[in-house]
């Protein structure tokens, strides 16, 4: 899933300062699963904004709405009858959400309520970890099913570097050295010959480096 974290409330309040009618829009997708952008968080954020407005003697109108998904125009359409009642929208979906809303409702001022972090998953309750860099050409099978592009600090394809120590990355003892894990796993599986194979420079054309990406499935295009 796409993992995000809430923006600091101070930053958000600063963003929407001066607006009287604010709509907070959540998403039932990834951000609900990682507890930052679902209906519950919409309610909390809306009430925080109301309280802060009251403190300043302002009677803010703060609406709440949570869409099935914000990465699908058909759900974004749901806002068409209510969005005109507000002068600002805070989307607490991933970075896709505020953009889809902005594109669909060009007259509306849209603000991002979360910082989108990465593609990953929950490794324990309350802890999420990156797994995919979206490079567009998956090669995890070459590395024992683990991705060095997303998980090595230097995206080494022929690791590990000289900074690997006690299974940790040189940048921090909080960061796992994925190459340590890859090597131990592959040696355990008697796959040293695969590790010894030279992995040539990767073509980044399918990654973001090749420019903004688009996918077209002809059979699905109406």
């Amino acid at each position: 899933m796409i993992v995000a974290e809430s923006k600091p409330i101070k930053e958000l309040l600063e963003m929407v300062k001066g607006f009287k009618k604010i709509l907070v829009v959540g998403c039932k997708g990834c951000v609900t699963v990682c507890n930052v952008g679902g209906a519950k968080e919409v309610a909390i954020l809306a009430s925080t904004i109301r309280i802060s407005g009251k403190k300043e003697g302002l009677d803010l109108v703060v609406g709440e709405h949570t869409l099935e998904r914000q990465c699908d125009p058909e759900y974004i359409d749901e806002l068409k009858d209510i969005i005109g009642d507000y002068d600002a929208v805070i989307s607490i979906a991933c970075g896709v959400g505020p953009q889809f809303i902005s594109e669909r409702y060009p007259a509306t001022k849209v603000f991002p309520g979360v910082n989108t972090k990465f593609m990953g998953g929950a490794v324990e309750h309350g802890v999420w970890s990156e797994r995919c860099a979206g490079c567009g050409t998956c090669v995890v099978h070459l590395f024992g099913g683990l991705c060095p592009i997303a998980r090595c600090s230097k995206s080494l394809l022929n690791g590990p570097c000289g900074g690997s120590s006690n299974g940790k990355c040189e940048i921090s003892s909080d960061v796992e050295c994925i190459w340590d894990t890859i090597v131990l796993k592959m040696m355990e599986q008697d796959r040293l010959d695969e590790l010894m194979e030279f992995r040539p420079p990767k073509s980044w054309t399918t990654a973001r480096d090749g420019g903004p990406r688009k996918m077209i499935r002809e059979e699905l295009v109406k």
């Binding site: 230097k154 995206s155 394809l157 992995r199």
Partner: peptide, 11 residues
Amino acid sequence: FDIDSMQLIHT
């Protein structure tokens, strides 16, 4: 880190 040290040697 477009390429790594191994690939640099090879380059």
